[in-house]
Design a binder for these strands. Structure first.
Length: 651
DNA sequence: TTGGTCGTTA
């Protein structure tokens, strides 16, 4: 890509609507009863624009012989706001004909407007035809290009600015940083480009500017470089809500929800100036959802209500997701039904997913149909959630029907992730052959999620041969995903193929990959306690194991046999039982039993799929201790009550 | 005259 911006010659700009056709087609709804002087019409147009009545303002424009700069400004802003491309072209032509063709102020506004309307060639043309290019004009085009994902062009423009000696400012840096991400978000070029612009910002002394630093944090967040974001954040001389929020969001979307919550608490306790807003709340709620911090989530919900913080649609959506992921489907439902905002596709998706992860497949499908009836177009993600819901609830035929309706009724071609859902649906239900047929019939290249779903199904149904086939592809597609190796080793272990288990483990070591270790946590008295398998560091470990030992002895009397098949090591039976007993979710359950009052519901979260043995043990404990236990695993919820699980032992 | 932070999935 050339560094010269001028190479990208814009196509000729033609107004989409001519002045003549405009005035003839419009039947005037405003009667101009008196011949008002120029000033009055100018003011009238401006006030109509401010009130959002663009159409009437446009009808008045031909009646004003000498439109003022302010009048055009109002019209341009209104066109951008109402996404009115036709009016935009008329206003543009009008102001050129009325002697504002050299006006760099209006040029700035026009470029910004065309950027928002996604008419980049028009924005470029205005830029090229503006003789006196102020920094505002440069920045406007830079912004338009960066926001339109024309990152390459934006960066080229930035180079031109430096080469031509245009005195850049902090706005220039904000837009250019965004352009780096737009130009190469997923390529390895992105960090390099970002560090180049970052270095230049440091050299010219803009790095510590609040807006520039905040943009930097956001950019590093998008690249997943949490360390870089932290460094910028730590070195900021002053912060405001937005910079705190950017760093919280960085943690929340890079799988560091605990850090996000801690940072939020830091902000609340150390910076009284930083009052959280709707945007802050969305990130913090997302972090709560990530760690199932129900109590913390409720506190935030109360905070939002108490401070009459604007419950924007995003906040309401985030609340629905938070309650669902914290195990309180009832609260999600209540918010969903009582909300006064217009529900958007994300709202519907969130509710579908809420029912889905709690195992209410039929409910999820009902909500899906209500969404269609409400006239909201389902998105790619809608189908992922509703198919996932079918999968959790074993609704095979319904799932297949929905999958087919995607292309037949909704004009969408299924993507790799939808094939992954259908393969998961069939595979989980044991229809592995059918799942393979689906994969073989795919017209697009099956992505890693598709083979991953098949591998997961092989793990559940212990199919060595098919698992090997899936892994042959997976190891090529994502050689660094330790999970695939672990699943294969699990399958070999269950089939007692210990040599193969060894081989896979060696493969893992050779690639220096770390298996993600099991971790569970529980919220007790507003604090979160986490456990790992055979948790030697835990001060209460002996007490926890003793309690579990007692419970297991009781269970064995009623016929329980520890499911040691799933222990990955070739050990003696009693050693395997010890490993099983030390599973993190069992420790968390035991901790909850000891440290909470009788009758309190235990809510546990686990980072992996719930193992078969923990599942049967938790069922027993729920009956024996008369406790309701809610466990969220990586995929879904299990509500244990009276010895029964809401998943009907299908997960 | 211009700018920064947010949500849904297996």
């Amino acid at each position: 890509m050339s560094s010269s911006f001028r190479i990208h010659f814009p196509p000729p700009f033609r107004p989409l609507f001519s002045l003549n056709s405009f005035s003839s087609s419009s039947s005037s709804s405003i009667a101009i009863s008196h011949r008002s002087s120029g000033g009055d019409v100018n003011r009238l147009i401006q006030s109509l624009c401010a009130k959002g009545n663009l159409a009437q303002a446009m009808e008045l424009l031909p009646h004003e012989p000498r439109p003022a700069q302010r009048t055009y400004e109002s019209l341009i802003l209104a066109c951008a706001h109402h996404n009115a491309a036709c009016h935009a072209a008329v206003v543009h032509r009008h102001l050129l004909q009325h002697g504002f063709d050299q006006d760099s102020f209006l040029a700035t506004k026009l470029i910004d407007m065309y950027g928002q309307l996604d008419l980049l060639y028009a924005a470029r043309q205005v830029f090229d035809e503006t003789p006196d290019k102020t920094i505002f004009v440069w920045n406007a085009l830079l912004k338009a290009l960066a926001l339109a994902d024309e990152g390459e062009d934006a960066l080229a423009l930035f180079s031109d600015m430096t080469r031509l000696g245009v005195p850049v400012d902090s706005f220039t840096f904000s837009h250019s940083l965004k352009a780096c991400i737009a130009a190469s978000s997923s390529s390895e070029l992105a960090p390099i480009r970002l560090s180049q612009v970052h270095a230049r910002a440091i050299r010219l002394g803009f790095e510590s500017h609040v807006h520039v630093a905040t943009t930097l944090i956001d950019c590093y967040a998008k690249l997943g470089s949490v360390v870089h974001a932290e460094r910028v954040f730590d070195e900021m001389p002053d912060r405001n809500v937005v910079s705190w929020s950017a760093m919280i969001a960085c943690y929340a979307k890079n799988e560091r929800p605990f850090d996000a919550l801690n940072l939020f608490n830091d902000m609340m306790s150390t910076d009284p100036e930083a009052v959280p807003n709707a945007v802050t709340m969305v990130s913090v709620l997302q972090a709560c959802a990530g760690v199932s911090a129900l109590v913390q989530g409720k506190v935030l919900h109360a905070y939002i209500l108490r401070n009459s913080l604007d419950p924007t649609l995003s906040v309401v959506n985030a609340l629905i997701v938070m309650y669902a992921k914290c195990g309180s489907l009832e609260r999600s439902r209540r918010i969903f039904h009582k909300m006064t905002n217009r529900k958007d596709v994300v709202t519907w998706n969130s509710m579908i997913s809420a029912y889905g992860i709690h195992g209410f497949g039929e409910k999820a499908i009902q909500v899906f149909h209500k969404m269609i009836n409400a006239g909201v177009r389902p998105s790619i993600i809608t189908f992922v959630t509703v198919l996932g819901a079918c999968s959790h609830a074993r609704l095979i035929d319904e799932g297949k029907r929905l999958f087919e309706s995607m292309s037949r009724e909704h004009g969408m071609s299924p993507r790799s992730e939808h094939f992954a859902c259908i393969v998961d649906l069939l595979g989980r239900a044991g229809q592995l052959d059918e799942a393979v047929k689906i994969i073989e019939g795919m017209r697009i290249e099956p992505g890693p999620t598709v083979w991953g779903s098949l591998l997961g199904a092989c793990r559940i149904h212990c199919n060595v041969e098919l698992a090997e086939r899936a892994c042959a592809r997976l190891f090529k597609l994502e050689p660094l995903n330790a999970g695939n190796y672990v699943l294969l080793a699990d399958i070999y272990a269950e089939a007692k193929m210990w040599d193969e288990v060894d081989r896979v483990k060696k493969l893992l070591e050779a690639k220096r990959l770390q298996k993600v270790s099991g971790c569970s946590w529980i919220e007790v008295k507003k604090k979160i306690y986490s456990f790992v398998s055979v948790d030697e560091m835990n001060p209460q470990i002996e007490q926890l194991l003793a309690l579990l030992g007692q419970l297991v002895t009781e269970m064995k009397n009623t016929g329980y046999v520890p499911n040691t098949r799933i222990v990955l090591y070739d050990l003696e039976q009693h050693e395997k039982e010890r490993v099983l007993l030390g599973h993190s979710e069992k420790l968390a359950v035991a901790f909850g039993l000891i440290n909470s009052s009788n009758g309190e519901v235990l809510r546990i979260t686990k980072n992996l799929r719930l193992c078969e043995d923990c599942h049967s043990v938790t069922k027993f404990i729920s009956k024996f201790t008369r406790r309701e236990i809610i466990v969220r695993d990586v995929n879904r919820f299990h509500h244990f009550k009276d010895g029964v699980c809401s998943c009907s032992d299908y997960w």
